[in-house]
């Protein structure tokens, strides 16, 4: 086992998937010769040829639509959208085509398509290289939405997404691409879609988070010696409701942390699910620590991102309620 960054882990996973299955095709902008703007596909076109790693024209709906057609007719495409901020021209293809094709054809067709895309802020990317748009996709039945928080999970979740048989929006937290390393086995392994990870165990409070915010939350909890359950959702659609509810029944206090804007973010849904299922166990209001409802500001991104101070404020509030 070697220590790998998330970029290296994803690259090695794609390499193994391509080596094992001739039908795996990668397509996206600048992913071939250039290896992708974040280098996730580095070296793969050299190894597998231009017929399997496609540098496409600059058109996201064309990329997703072509990937969907490939998937319907027996190939196993993995699409890269260069930044999640640029996925919106493909929104109709995602919401009205790939998410609905199995359903509307009565299971005659399926779309086993993985759409990988880097999301989130913290790399000085401004309004259009920083967004966290997971809610748009979580609102669409027929999709699965997955986001790893570390290099190890990135591999296991990508393999499971690839094998799931359904369209998966695979959100890669770009701030974490190179900032943390973990041991990543060479061989393929799987992390079940729909299963959260309990990263820390405690009894005072449940902190629910995912993707780009996980390392911030874990560092904050560790540094401040908070006696907390920390749940990394890993899959946003469908969420691991059992993991959430069993922790809430134990602690009775909940803080939800995400980078995406507060209004109709994941926190809203989690909060509603908890109130429907575990109202009697709650000892304090559920508090959300999120990005504000503004576009992602260029020079003040540290104000946008939830940090130790805001997370600890929320934890104090629910503990002292």
């Amino acid at each position: 086992m070697t220590l790998k960054t998330m970029v290296q882990s994803l690259n090695q996973t794609l390499d193994v998937l391509m080596a094992e299955n001739q039908n795996v095709i990668l397509l996206g902008e600048d992913i071939g010769k250039n290896g992708g703007v974040f280098r996730v596909t580095e070296g793969l076109q050299n190894k597998y040829g231009e017929g399997r790693v496609l540098d496409t024209p600059l058109n996201e709906l064309g990329i997703v639509g072509m990937g969907a057609g490939m998937a319907m007719y027996g190939l196993r495409p993995i699409v890269e959208i260069q930044f999640q901020d640029f996925i919106f021209p493909a929104f109709d293809q995602i919401v009205n085509q790939i998410a609905k094709i199995r359903y509307r054809t009565g299971n005659q067709f399926s779309v086993p398509l993985v759409i990988r895309t880097p999301y989130g802020g913290g790399v000085r990317g401004g309004l259009y290289h920083s967004q966290s748009g997971e809610s748009y996709f979580v609102h669409t039945s027929g999709l699965k939405v997955v986001t790893p928080s570390n290099p190890y999970d990135a591999k296991g979740l990508l393999v499971s997404s690839f094998e799931s048989g359904d369209p998966v929006i695979f959100l890669e937290p770009k701030r974490v691409y190179r900032s943390i390393k973990s041991e990543v086995p060479e061989e393929l392994y799987r992390i079940e879609i729909g299963k959260a990870a309990l990263l820390k165990e405690g009894s005072d409070v449940t902190v629910i988070t995912y993707g780009s915010m996980v390392s911030t939350v874990v560092d904050t909890i560790t540094k401040n010696r908070v006696n907390a359950d920390v749940i990394d959702l890993r899959t946003l659609l469908p969420m691991d409701i059992d993991a959430i509810i069993s922790s809430v029944k134990k602690t009775g206090r909940v803080v939800i942390v995400h980078e995406a804007p507060r209004t109709l973010g994941m926190g809203a849904e989690i909060s509603a699910l908890i109130s429907e299922r575990a109202m009697d166990y709650l000892l304090a209001p559920i508090i959300r620590v999120t990005g504000p409802d503004i576009p992602f500001p260029y020079i003040y991104e540290e104000l946008y991102l939830p940090d130790e101070r805001r997370i600890m404020d929320a934890i104090s509030k629910v503990k002292n309620y």
């Binding site: 095709i25 709906l61 064309g62 997703v64 639509g65 072509m66 990937g67 969907a68 057609g69 490939m70 998937a71 319907m72 007719y73 027996g74 190939l75 495409p77 109709d92 293809q93 009205n96 085509q97 609905k100 094709i101 509307r104 054809t105 009565g106 005659q108 067709f109």
Partner: peptide, 28 residues
């Protein structure tokens, strides 16, 4: 949608099947 007859699948949003056609052609 009649897969058995190689007739793909129809959606309401106009033109949205055309990118899918390119993917099917790539598979061939």
């Amino acid at each position: 949608s009649f897969k058995e007859y190689n007739f793909s699948t129809i959606q309401s949003p106009v033109g949205a099947h055309l990118p899918l056609a390119t993917g099917a052609a790539y598979a061939l």
